[in-house]
């Protein structure tokens, strides 16, 4: 919205784990489940963003589990938003700093404004607020941390829950053998497809921290709105042991269930693409939420993944299923 741009700071690329910032701004002392994927994501994002950051945290796991009770685990400013309106609150903070700095009412740097919304708070009930923030091109980064369900309320289906997943609102049964019957929304594509002002959109995964942190920094360096969709496996919701979040995250990428790309200058750039894909059944069978699926369902998912990859221009063979 700025008529006259206020000066923004730039951050550097991270070359390796050894060069990753030592400082943590998402600190010990929160009630997220043991082995929580979204908590790993929060930590990496906060690390990459650094101290001049303001987080907006709409209702969701990362609100409820992190701030109980009357305390916060962030060493930077943070504000709760409703599950509906994180994009709005973020827009307001960004606009306030534009105006206050321009009018000489605030002496300091323009902060990184980062909205950290769950998949429900970004692809479903919070979609309008997200789209509004992107359309208006406020200087902020909107992150959708995707654990593929409304997890804090007890794992209910969301638009990004994969086809065939069992949730407490999509229980499989004789009449509905596959559990969830719908194909997931592709939120990152939705942002790319209809928001021409947005200069940077990326997907990332907690399985690939250097890639994730550099994408956060790139997104923060962009003038105006940026969006990231980050895959964050949920041990409780998906039904895998607490020590497996990173394996599951990597398996999602290795099977093509999650794709890693950046969109800038009107182009998609695929990152971290294995030469050969593992069959999706390997990913599905590692999680209890898919344990009811038949071979037919799994084949449908494989087809869906193949099609999704083809649409992105990814042409890599899928390894034969070895059973």
């Amino acid at each position: 919205m700025a008529t006259q741009k206020v000066e923004k700071t730039k951050v550097d690329r991270i070359r390796s784990l050894a060069k990753a910032p030592m400082d943590d701004y998402y600190v010990s002392g929160h009630r997220t489940c043991a082995g929580c994927g979204p908590a790993i994501n929060y930590r990496m994002v906060a690390k990459a963003a650094g101290k001049d950051t303001i987080f907006v945290g709409p209702t969701g796991c990362m609100y409820v589990a992190n701030t109980s009770y009357l305390c916060v685990p962030w060493a930077v400013p943070w504000i709760h938003a409703q599950i509906t309106n994180a994009g709005g609150i973020g827009s307001g903070i960004s606009a306030a700093y534009e105006a206050r700095i321009r009018k000489g009412k605030y002496k300091g740097k323009f902060p990184n404004v980062i909205v950290m919304a769950g998949d429900g708070g970004s692809s479903d009930i919070g979609l309008q607020a997200l789209s509004g923030a992107m359309y208006r091109n406020h200087d902020l980064l909107f992150i959708s941390y995707d654990n593929e369900a409304y997890a804090n309320t007890g794992i209910q289906v969301s638009p990004t829950t994969p086809y065939g997943a069992r949730t407490t609102f999509t229980p499989p049964g004789p009449v509905v053998p596959e559990g969830k019957k719908l194909w997931p929304k592709d939120l990152a594509k939705l942002i790319v497809g209809g928001h021409p002002s947005v200069a940077y959109v990326a997907t990332a995964s907690i399985g690939y921290p250097i890639d994730l942190m550099n994408k956060v920094r790139k997104a923060l360096n962009v003038e105006g709105a940026a969006f990231m969709h980050i895959h964050a496996p949920c041990p409780k919701g998906w039904g895998f042991p607490a020590d497996k979040a990173i394996e599951i995250a990597r398996l999602a990428v290795q099977t093509g269930m999650w794709t890693m790309w950046e969109y800038e200058n009107d182009e998609y750039k695929i990152n971290i693409q294995p030469k050969k894909l593992k069959p999706v059944s390997q990913y599905l069978e590692a999680q209890d939420r898919f344990s009811h699926l038949t071979a037919e369902h799994k084949a449908k998912i494989q087809n869906f993944v193949n099609h999704k990859l083809a649409m992105l221009g990814i042409k890599v063979p899928v390894e034969a299923v070895t059973a």
Partner: peptide, 14 residues
């Protein structure tokens, strides 16, 4: 008040 960087949130010892 926010905890300090690299600090801890002692209200929630886990």
């Amino acid at each position: 008040k926010a905890p300090s960087p690299n600090g801890e949130q002692e209200s929630m010892i886990t």
